[in-house]
């Protein structure tokens, strides 16, 4: 997994609550059997004026001029400012894959849906929860100032504003450790293989019907 230590990047808005994973990446693109290439279809239904199809050349499609991420001022953005309950809906990991492929490294919102939140960490994408009032303020400042860049320092757990002001955020110690070092969860868990085997042997004794029923 890609490590995340410090990142400085242009902020862009996704100004609505309850952005669901169908909106982040519509289902027709989930037919891919790869992990990459979802970026051009991020927010497909909002971004383009036509209906997207898998495998299409998106550079030829009509862009929706009213969708903020299409504004020239937000091109190259890598920090997404969002609203409550971002990423609700399905468990599709294609949602963080699409955000990542488009170039986002961090998402700031007052709250996230559980599965999406979890999926982000598995893909080197950092979801940051901040107070709603602070998120409101970031939105305002970003609207007021073109080229509004935020620095995210995972080690210090801080978001740094262009004026140098800092905002602290919480992050789970284990997830932070994995993200800072770009660690692969599976490798880490397999270090505990003996514990898993011990548990499994006990379980097999207590509940034998859970084993070998399906073959």
């Amino acid at each position: 997994m890609k490590a995340f230590t410090q990142h400085k990047g242009l902020a862009a808005p996704m100004d609505r609550a309850n952005v669901d994973t169908d909106l982040i990446i519509p289902k027709q693109f989930l037919k891919s059997i790869k992990r990459t290439g979802f970026g051009p279809n991020l927010f497909d239904e909002l971004r383009y004026l036509d209906e997207g199809q898998p495998g299409q050349d998106c550079s030829q499609r009509p862009l929706n001029p009213e969708f903020p991420l299409n504004f020239p001022r937000y091109q190259g953005a890598s920090v997404l400012l969002a609203r409550k309950n971002f990423g609700c809906g399905s468990s599709r990991e294609h949602a963080p894959w699409a955000l990542d492929d488009h170039g986002f490294r961090a998402i700031i919102a007052p709250s996230f849906a559980d599965i999406f939140f979890n999926n982000c960490f598995k893909n080197g994408l950092l979801p940051i929860v901040l107070d709603e009032a602070i998120v409101d303020q970031l939105f305002e400042e970003m609207h007021a100032q073109e080229g509004y860049e935020l620095t995210i320092d995972l080690e210090k757990q801080q978001v740094v504003k262009p004026n140098g002001e800092t905002i602290d955020f919480e992050v789970d110690a284990f997830r932070k450790h994995c993200l800072l070092n770009g660690l692969d969860d599976i490798g880490l868990t397999l270090e505990d293989a003996d514990d898993i085997r011990t548990y499994e042997a006990k379980r097999r004794e207590q509940a034998p019907w859970l084993f070998d029923a399906v073959k």
């Binding site: 468990s91 969860d185 599976i186 898993i196």
Partner: peptide, 19 residues
Amino acid sequence: GIGTSEVEHVMATQCLIQK
């Protein structure tokens, strides 16, 4: 429900990392 990385994790380890 779990994401695809977790699908791989469970297949490989029979476990899920949870809080």
